[in-house]
Design a protein around this nucleic acid. Structure first.
Lengths: 124, 124
DNA sequence: GTTAGTGTTCTAGTTATATAGTACACTAAT
DNA sequence: ATTAGTGTACTATATAACTAGAACACTAAC
């Protein structure tokens, strides 16, 4: 159970990221109910308050919806999920490319590095 | 001058990253002297103590060397720079790929996404 | 209307970070 | 020897972020 958390970034953000990705990759379906604040709190071994902040973030970003007395649910709107998936994809790529170029790598080297890595990963 | 700092990560780390990358991309040459703690403090508008921590990190990672009474210098050893460059490259790629796969993207989509991004970037 | 389950809010404490100020240690030049 | 310039170390303080704990508010089911 309960994966560990890194110390450098806030737990509620790490938790939000994890849930976000589970939704984006379809592991959690649109309209599906997330575990309650308290249940997640126990399972992840963090304070309910921390989970609450996580759910608050998920709601603000539009990917989930909290209904008092009922629970927190993945948004029903597949368009939101799709656009968020595209946006995050682009952001991740942009950030990655920026760092690589900042280290002095050119476009071709970046592409080649990725390709090489993916091939190696595939072999093992 | 003095670029701004983000609030989420420690200033001394952001500063270390910046200098690190300037070294890796050759903007700061092996053996070159970095500005003194106090000078950087003024230029970046942060406390000397914060700069000191930055330089301490750079020294611990082996990319720079501090000599009491003289200053802090980029390492003379090109092998260190080269291996560090390779290591960071690989780490960045691995981290990027992990996140992308975590969002549900397959190898091919990742490569394609990168390619697309780089082409767009080239046009503008 | 009572209860169990849910999200929400509030107050306080802990910790990490940054800063401030001062003093020390060493080097090179004069 | 003195001086100016450098890195280093220490203590104390302020502030913001994170976490903890408890209480509140709402909903659905019985």
């Amino acid at each position: 159970m309960s994966q560990e958390f890194e110390s450098n970034t806030p737990i509620y953000m790490q938790l939000a990221d994890r849930i976000n990705r589970r939704i984006l990759r379809g592991e959690l379906q649109p309209g599906e109910k997330l575990p309650s604040v308290r249940e997640t709190s126990v399972q992840s071994n963090v304070n309910p308050n921390t989970v609450q902040r996580t759910y608050q973030i998920l709601e603000q970003s539009g990917i989930a919806e909290s209904r008092r007395g009922q629970g927190t649910f993945v948004t029903e709107d597949p368009a939101i999920l799709q656009s968020m998936r595209e946006r995050l994809k682009r952001e991740e790529i942009a950030s990655f490319v920026r760092v690589m170029k900042d280290m002095g790598y050119e476009a071709q080297e970046i592409q080649h590095g990725i390709q090489e890595f993916l091939e190696e990963e595939n072999e093992s």
